[in-house]
Design a protein around this nucleic acid. Sequence first.
DNA 1: CTAGGTGCAAAAGGTTTGCGGTTAA
DNA 2: TTAACCGCAAACCTTTTGCACCTAG
Lengths: 151, 151
Amino acid sequence: MSSETTETTASKAAEDFGGLRMTKQRQVVYEVLTDLSKGHPTASEVFVNAKERMPSISLATVYNCLETLTGAGAVRQVHIDREATRYCANLQPHAHFYCTDCDKVFDIGLEAGADAASVWSLPPGCRVEEMQVAIRGVCGACEKCRQGHAA
Amino acid sequence: MSSETTETTASKAAEDFGGLRMTKQRQVVYEVLTDLSKGHPTASEVFVNAKERMPSISLATVYNCLETLTGAGAVRQVHIDREATRYCANLQPHAHFYCTDCDKVFDIGLEAGADAASVWSLPPGCRVEEMQVAIRGVCGACEKCRQGHAA
DNA sequence: CTAGGTGCAAAAGGTTTGCGGTTAA
DNA sequence: TTAACCGCAAACCTTTTGCACCTAG
């Protein structure tokens, strides 16, 4: 029966996004992104990592691939202040916490059963396409460290 | 609708921000911002308007003033995708709705009694300094217009 | 008086684009 | 085969910076 639907690798997943043409470059970019997704890499960081796997790839191509993958819904852009755009393979609804002390970005999930849009008094008739929630502050580790230093 | 305070003039308010040195340029930038705050102007837009009131002002100075006022807590930066930073004199907690059709930005208030952070499962020990909520979509007016065009 | 602010122009990122050669479907 | 994609370099736009002059406190 389903003898030919047995592909199980990451490349399988990459091949499926919106039926878009799957080039080696796009595969590499997508793999880098899933590997580094906890690090929320910028385009340049993706570029550095992609170059290790495919030395001929160019920065412009990385940008192109990231845009294509974003358009296909395979990855999300993350905007924090006006720093370089970061990319995230976590497609679940979530916020980003940016620690101003250590510069790390953490994914923040929704409370059980919560709906991120419900706290906002959206005008009737509008259609929400995407929501970006960026929280700036100091993470637990850095906060602890500060208290240690404080008098 | 900014009415019930006992403060007298806009310039009075501008003079009070953190005891920072109040130059003519900063006053002009602040006044432009309060006048245009519903339009969520970019630095360039503030510059154009400021130049009408003070032809000698430079773009770099507008950037400097905006940064100073932001640091003093008099205005907030608004980041939507990676477009030019917009500035907002509305200090109440609120989200921004960006209509991808007409490119306008609207302030979205909290539902009565709601707390924007409460839906997010923040890790214990972290300290929140600021929250930016950007909602992309199509506003009511544009959505209505689209339905009109549809068959 | 003088620390800090201003104006100018040039530089610094991040991102996009134009174009000839390449490639997945 | 051929429309789409890649790699390169140059362009673009927003924002920052260095420096000489000026001004609010």
